[in-house]
Design a protein around this nucleic acid. Structure first.
Length: 592
DNA sequence: TTAGGGTTAG
């Protein structure tokens, strides 16, 4: 007879969790440490820490929340502030500012004291979400309870730099000194980097002087790397190399960041031959090449259309046990696309999972816009659909470009396909609607599309994000039934909408208005079809004309669009989908 | 794992 499995101790659970790479398995293990035991498991604080960190890193934030609720009920120990700092950071990375703020406010309920540390983490998380207004609010509010330190000000300075508002970054720099907080190396590093990025090299060098002479803060690699990049950007390569030598003289540790910048600049200046010297110097300084250094070379070779050399670097990385990262593949895929090597680009993209590298939003955007530029419409449509499925969005410009190209090519069939994909991701904005509608009307030999466009304009006009409201499905159904345009008018005006509608439209802002209109029209089309009106108005025609030819709705279409034969088409999206369109949140850009 | 630099697209 098999022996019953030995029950595991809290200590053993922690070490098992540490070893488990798969976050799902780790979660399962955490939730069922001893499946056959009948008394509750006494989790250690370390186990909580490990599972929360694992789930957070894997972006399994709902599961992480579940564990947090459990942690709240544990009274045997008091969790340290660091756990909450990590959680706040995870929310920041996931662009969930409200949840970051919420957990920050909840910290005391976990029997943990908040300090400037979690406050600064919150500020930084809000910065990751580009919630500058909220940052200010939080800073002003908490200022009354706790004195900001250099780190707090450094986050604010970085916010100024990212907003391209170097003036306000400077103001923060002055303010911190007024309040007796000494700027440190990070303060100068942040400000100098911002000045270099903004092309204010003179100011940056002046600040470097002040840092050293006036403030007696030691220069470090961060400051040098920013300045060297700034010089390279304006083609001052010899000055950049001089600065690197200054680092050697002053015994500032030379790191891969400085060398990567120089290598990248040499390639861009067409001085590939000089890269060998830099690599040699790296070796002399015992500085290892990292993925970024290799990527600088790969990019250089791709710009020169030397893909063999680029793949050579890739093999070299593997040989040196430096795992190629996603940027590495993005660079090569981009290079292939620029050269019209779409098959190669797609093959490498498809090979990424085998190479144990997940494509990111940049990979998709690069491939998508490359395929569009090369008029590889079918492939582009496939990538687009996959992108939307993954909740990534192409840039608004490339969507419009793609739609324009399809309109020009008269490829209505593919146009419907991609509009369908875009609708799934709530990615059709008023510009796209504006491009598509005339196309549809022209194709159906209708008089003109001005009525619809006018409608879109009316709805988009001056609508700001004022309120947030989440309508019930009953509300929406009422909208559909009541929202018939007045018969005298051929287009919709504000008077055709109840105050509720207008509130709804305002709540979602101008950007969403077009999607909302699309949804209303969807339902509208369905109402029209179900009523089998004898003499369709021009408005009816317009909507019906948008339906692809040859699609015959069943006799009694219901609001549950899935029963309809045409529900795959854009204008007849199923209602549950429309609900999602309405409730969707704008997808963030990179890093989403 | 409270904050800053270097490689990719748009």
């Amino acid at each position: 007879m098999a022996k019953p499995p030995k029950s595991i101790s809290p200590f053993r659970l922690a070490s098992l969790l540490r070893l488990q790479k798969d976050p799902n398995l780790a979660l399962h293990l955490f939730l069922n440490p001893n499946p056959n035991a009948n008394k509750p498991f006494r989790y250690s604080l370390l186990s909580y820490d490990l599972i929360i960190t694992k789930l957070g890193r894997a972006k399994m934030l709902d599961e992480m929340d579940q564990i947090l609720q459990q942690l709240k009920t544990e009274t045997r120990f008091n969790p340290g502030e660091i756990i909450f700092c990590n959680i706040i950071t995870f929310y920041g990375r996931a662009r969930l500012p409200d949840r970051a703020l919420h957990i920050f406010n909840q910290i005391p309920s976990f029997r943990c004291q908040r300090t400037i540390k979690s406050f600064n983490t919150l500020l930084n998380a809000l910065l990751s979400c580009r919630e500058f207004g909220k940052m200010r609010e939080v800073f002003v509010g908490l200022n009354r309870f706790v004195a900001p330190d250099a780190c707090s000000y450094n986050v604010l300075i970085r916010a100024g730099c990212l907003m391209n508002d170097l003036g306000s970054a400077r103001e923060v720099f002055d303010e911190m000194q007024k309040r007796g907080v000494r700027p440190d190396a990070v303060t100068f590093g942040t400000l100098i980097s911002g000045l270099c990025a903004g092309g204010k090299l003179d100011e940056a060098f002046k600040l470097k002087e002040d840092m050293e002479r006036g403030f007696r803060v030691r220069l470090d690699g961060f400051v040098y790397a920013s300045l060297i990049k700034g010089l390279c950007k304006v083609n001052e390569l010899s000055l950049a190399f001089k600065l690197k030598d200054e680092m050697l003289e002053r015994r500032v540790e030379l790191d891969s960041a400085v060398f990567s910048t120089l290598i990248s600049a040499l390639f861009k200046a067409g001085r590939k031959g000089d890269v060998v010297g830099v690599l040699k110097e790296m070796k002399e300084n015992k500085c290892k090449l990292d993925a970024i250094t290799y990527n600088a070379m790969i990019y250089g070779y791709c710009q020169e259309k030397d893909f063999d050399a680029a793949f050579g670097v890739l093999s070299e990385m593997e040989k040196r046990r430096c795992k190629p990262d996603v940027v590495c593949y993005n660079v090569i895929i981009g290079g292939f696309c620029r050269e019209g090597k779409f098959r190669e680009a797609t093959e490498l993209f498809e090979d990424m999972p085998r190479r144990k590298c997940a494509p990111d939003v940049v990979t998709y955007r690069t491939l998508f816009s490359g395929l569009c530029d090369g008029k590889q419409f079918q492939e582009a449509a496939l990538i687009l659909d996959e992108m939307v499925f993954k909740d990534y969005s192409p840039s608004a410009a490339s969507i419009v470009k793609f739609v324009d190209e399809l309109c020009q090519a008269g490829n209505l069939k593919l146009l419907w396909t991609i509009l369908n994909s875009l609708a799934k991701g709530n990615l059709i904005d008023s510009v796209t609607w504006g491009r598509v509608i005339p196309m549809v009307c022209e194709n159906n030999k209708l008089l003109n599309a001005s009525a619809l466009i006018e409608t879109l304009l009316i709805l988009s006009r001056g609508l700001d994000l004022i309120t947030n409201c989440s309508p019930s499905s009953e509300n929406k159904r009422q909208c559909v039934d009541e929202k018939r345009p007045s018969s005298a008018s051929s287009s919709w005006t504000e008077s055709d909408f109840t105050p509720f509608d207008m509130k709804l439209l305002r709540g979602y802002g101008g950007f969403w208005t077009a999607a909302y209109t699309g949804w209303l029209r969807t339902a509208e089309a369905r109402v029209l079809l179900s009523k089998e009106k004898e003499v369709p108005s021009m408005e009816d025609n317009l909507i019906l004309s948008a339906l692809p030819k040859g699609t015959t709705p069943r006799s009694s279409p219901s609001y549950k669009g899935h029963a309809m034969a045409i529900n795959e088409r854009l204008y007849v999206l199923p209602i549950p989908h429309a609900d999602r369109v309405l409730q969707a949140v704008p997808s963030p850009g990179v890093g989403h």
